[in-house]
C-alpha cells in the first residue's frame, strides 16, 4: 500500500467516528428542538379549512401589518442592540485587564464580574426596583445628602436594559476572556517593541485575533436577549413590550396561540440571521487557517 493510499484511508476511516461523536447531542437537538420548531412553523403557515389543511400566510400578514406587534419587535431589537453594545464595551476592558495584568486586583474583579451568575433574574428584578426604583436606595442616599432624586429607569426601556446588562455580564466576559487566551503576550510585546501604542495594539493586534470571539459573544447574548422574560416583564414599560412578555401575554391572556407562535417564528428568524453571519464567519476563519 502506498503512502498516499494509507492517508486516504485514514481520512475515510475517520469520517464515521466524527459523526458518531456528535451523534448524541445532534440527535437530542433534532428531536427536542428542531422537530418542535418545525411543528410550530408548520402551524403558522397553514390554516384548517373544511377541505383540509391549506397553506396560508395570514398569520404573518397580520404580524407585519400590525403596528403594535412591529413596535414591540422594534423595541426588542433596540434593547438587544443597546445591551449587546454595552456588554461588549464593558467586558472588553475588563477582559483585557484580567488577561494582561498581574495585579492582585484581578482576583477581586473576576469574582465580582462573575457573581451575577448566582443571582436569579427574579431576585435581581426586585433588587433593582429597591435600588434604582422610585424612592429606592439610591434616592434615599441622594436625598440624605440633599441632592435631587434620580429619574428612575424603573418602568422605562432603561429598566430592562440595566437588568439585562447586569445579568449577562459574566457570560460575555467569560467568552471574551476565553478568546483573549489566543492573544499571546509575546505578540503584544513584539508590537510594543516596534513602537505601537495602546490604540494601535488594540486595533491591529488584539481585535483581529478575537474578532470571531466577539461575534460568538454577541450572538450568544443577542439570542438570550430576544427571549428574555422576567426582567422586561417586571422592570419594563407596559408598551412597547419586549417579545418575551409579548409572546407570553399573547398565549395566556389574549389566548391566541397562533399569533404567539408567529411571534416566536419571527423572533427566531431574526436570531437565525445573526446565527448565519456567525457561522459564516467561523467557516471563513477555518478556511483561512487550513489554507
Amino acid at each position: 500500500m502506498s503512502r498516499a493510499e494509507a492517508t486516504r484511508q485514514d481520512t475515510k476511516g475517520r469520517r464515521p467516528i466524527g459523526l458518531l461523536l456528535v451523534a448524541v447531542p445532534v440527535f437530542l437537538v433534532l428531536s427536542l428542538i428542531v422537530w418542535p420548531v418545525a411543528l410550530s412553523v408548520f402551524d403558522t403557515l397553514t390554516v384548517e379549512t373544511p377541505s383540509g389543511v391549506t397553506l396560508s400566510l395570514d398569520a404573518y400578514r397580520f404580524f407585519f401589518s400590525d403596528s403594535f406587534s412591529l413596535r414591540n419587535l422594534w423595541m426588542t431589537v433596540q434593547v438587544a442592540a443597546i445591551c449587546t453594545a454595552l456588554l461588549l464595551a464593558i467586558s472588553l476592558p475588563i477582559a483585557l485587564y484580567l488577561r494582561f495584568s498581574t495585579s492582585r486586583l484581578t482576583g477581586y474583579i473576576q469574582a465580582l464580574a462573575l457573581f451575577p451568575l448566582f443571582v436569579p433574574s427574579i431576585l435581581l428584578a426586585y433588587a433593582l426596583i429597591r435600588t434604582l426604583g422610585p424612592n429606592g436606595t439610591v434616592d434615599i442616599l441622594l436625598s440624605a445628602v440633599g441632592l435631587p432624586k434620580l429619574a428612575s429607569p424603573y418602568l422605562t426601556i432603561w429598566g430592562p436594559i440595566i437588568g439585562l446588562v447586569w445579568d449577562n455580564l459574566p457570560l460575555t466576559l467569560l467568552i471574551v476572556l476565553a478568546g483573549l487566551g489566543n492573544v499571546s503576550r509575546a505578540s503584544i510585546d513584539a508590537a510594543r517593541d516596534v513602537g505601537a501604542n495602546r490604540v494601535q495594539l488594540l486595533r491591529y493586534i488584539i481585535l483581529p485575533r478575537i474578532r470571531s470571539t466577539l461575534l460568538v459573544a454577541a450572538s450568544f447574548v443577542i439570542l438570550g436577549l430576544f427571549s428574555a422574560f422576567t426582567l422586561p416583564y417586571l422592570l419594563g414599560p407596559a408598551v412597547p413590550e419586549m417579545m418575551g412578555p409579548f409572546m407570553r401575554r399573547t398565549i395566556i391572556d389574549v389566548d391566541d396561540p397562533l399569533q404567539a407562535r408567529t411571534q416566536a417564528v419571527v423572533t427566531f428568524l431574526i436570531c437565525a440571521a445573526f446565527a448565519y453571519f456567525y457561522v459564516r464567519s467561523i467557516a471563513r476563519t477555518r478556511r483561512e487557517q487550513s489554507s
Binding site: R14, R15, P16, I17, G18, L19, V22, P25, V26, V29, L30, I33, V34, V37, S40, S219, F220, L223, G224, F226, S227, F229, M243, G244, M247, R248, I251, A260, R261, Q263, A264, T267, F268, C271, A272, F274, A275, Y276, Y278, V279, A283
Partner: peptide, 21 residues
C-alpha cells in the same frame, strides 16, 4: 465529516427559538 457545519449550526436553534413557545 459530512454535514459538519450544518450540525454545528443546529445547536443554535436551542438558543435562537424563543424558549417559552
Amino acid at each position: 465529516f459530512p454535514g459538519r457545519n450544518l450540525f454545528f449550526m443546529s445547536f443554535l436553534t436551542v438558543y435562537a427559538f424563543p424558549k417559552f413557545g
